[in-house]
């Protein structure tokens, strides 16, 4: 099968087959990233524009590397150095980029739905690299890829997503994809960080971390967004770390072969103890490495559906 979509905006509408195709394609690119010459000529002559309205190092670099390894030309476009500060709208900025014949626009924006708006306004393919609190599809896909690479199957897999679920686009994309693939998803965190009615997505909510971690195969930690601390979602960072920080003791509550994931950047000693982040069960750096292969796969698939 082949992907019939021009854009990757969200995992919610994707079929299981489409998700599996993306993971299988990433697998082929993982082999390419392991070669001595990590470059193939596939997207020669295509232009990929990284349009990032929010600061990001990891995701932007990962997309840049993915595009370069496919021989595409890459332009990084960030708002502070552009006419956005002069009052240009998102769509006008994008149309200008399109007029320069960009084939793919990778968009990171602080507003939910920004990628969707863009995709409807331009002919170029659009990849959502995070829109507000909505979705971050490529991050979830690389998480799925990393889980599968560790030999874990999705059917009946128990996954605990721990932290500030309300403000996490990573959590939302993972919930959509994991429940589709037949995994049992638990959300663990203080009630102030759980969106109302999230159970409707087929997940179970735990406010007690120890209970939530019992017997799980995957512990997916979310970054505590320290910049949101002023909103009084929790009293102090120390208290949060005590109640929802992942320690070696707590990892023992999970299944003996459980893996620990984190989308980065990690706050050592806050949501994750340093010894856990560096332990053998941690796949945090695998996630980063797999990110490039997964994004190469998506760029490849998307640029075919012209």
């Amino acid at each position: 099968m082949s992907l019939k979509r021009k854009d990757l905006l969200s995992l919610a509408p994707l079929s299981v087959d489409e998700i599996k195709l993306m993971l299988d394609t990433a697998d082929s690119f993982k082999e390419v990233t392991g070669r001595e010459i990590k470059k193939v000529p596939t997207l020669r002559g295509k232009t990929v524009v990284n349009l990032f309205f929010e600061p990001s190092t990891r995701t932007r670099t990962s997309f840049e590397l993915a595009a370069k390894r496919l021989s595409a030309d890459v332009i990084n476009f960030s708002p502070s150095s552009s006419s956005v500060v002069k009052g240009e709208t998102l769509l006008d900025t994008a149309r200008n980029i399109e007029a320069m014949q960009a084939d793919v626009i990778v968009l990171r924006h602080s507003s939910a739905g920004a990628a969707d708006t863009l995709a409807r306004g331009v002919k170029s393919s659009v990849i959502n690299a995070g829109d507000g609190w909505h979705e971050h599809p490529t991050q979830a896909l690389l998480d799925l890829y990393t889980i599968r690479e560790r030999g874990l199957g999705f059917e009946g897999l128990r996954v605990a997503i721990v932290g500030d679920v309300s403000h996490s686009r990573v959590a939302r994309s993972n919930i959509y994809a994991l429940t589709k693939l037949g995994a049992e998803v638990r959300l663990v965190g203080p009630p102030t960080m759980m969106p109302w009615g999230i159970e409707k997505l087929g997940v179970t909510v735990y406010s007690n971390m120890d209970e939530g971690l019992r017997g799980v195969n995957v512990i997916m930690m979310l970054r505590l967004q320290l910049e949101r601390q002023g909103r009084a979602l929790f009293p102090t960072i120390r208290e949060y770390a005590r109640l929802y920080g992942l320690t070696a003791e707590r990892v023992k509550l999970a299944d003996s072969g459980a893996i620990v994931m984190h989308p980065g950047p990690i706050n050592r000693g806050v949501e994750i103890a340093p010894d856990v982040a560096d332990s053998l069960s941690s796949v945090i750096l695998d996630q980063v490495a797999n990110g490039v292969a997964v994004r190469m796969g998506i760029l490849y698939l998307i640029s075919g559906a012209g």
Binding site: M1, S2, L3, K4, L21, D24, T25, D27, S28, F29, E31, V32, V40, P41, T42, G45, G297, Y300, L301, S303, G304, A305, G306
Partner: peptide
């Protein structure tokens, strides 16, 4: 597949398999 010269002409990308 990644070295084909007709990728830009095709409507859909061919399924990738692995080189080993």
């Amino acid at each position: 597949t990644l070295y084909r010269d007709d990728l830009a002409l095709r409507k859909n990308q061919p399924v990738l398999r692995k080189t080993s």
